[in-house]
Amino acid sequence: MSSTPIQFLIYVLPLPTCQKVPLILPINGCLEVQIGVPVTFQLFALNFCNKTIKITDIAITSVITGMSAGNLTTVTGNSSLYYRTLNWTPTSDQMDFQELCAVAVTR
């Protein structure tokens, strides 16, 4: 037998004024990368609310070891689209699937 614990908190937020959930792109982002070869890619978030609501963060909630993330940046000419640039050089002990989790936050 074994038993692994997991404990976490849930915080109840008031309903947001705009309930359209932002979209994270690419949607099914499974990237093939090579050990030792630096890779750079962008994680986009698309805002469906009007201009009073903005994307305030693309939070990386579960990071891949060795990966760095740039600041939140707007796309020139499209105020609904924001992105962060991720840099990573996979190491030999990272063979197999690696998981990255991100949350787009509007406010």
Binding site: S2, T4, I6, F8, I10, L15, S62
Partner: peptide, 25 residues
């Protein structure tokens, strides 16, 4: 020797009031 399951979830999880949310572990 058994290798136990691994579980990961970030905390806190944010939910909206009066909205049924499914949180997958």
């Amino acid at each position: 020797i058994n290798t136990p399951p691994v579980v990961k979830i970030v905390s806190p999880q944010y939910v909206f009031v009066n909205t049924t949310m499914a949180i997958k572990i």
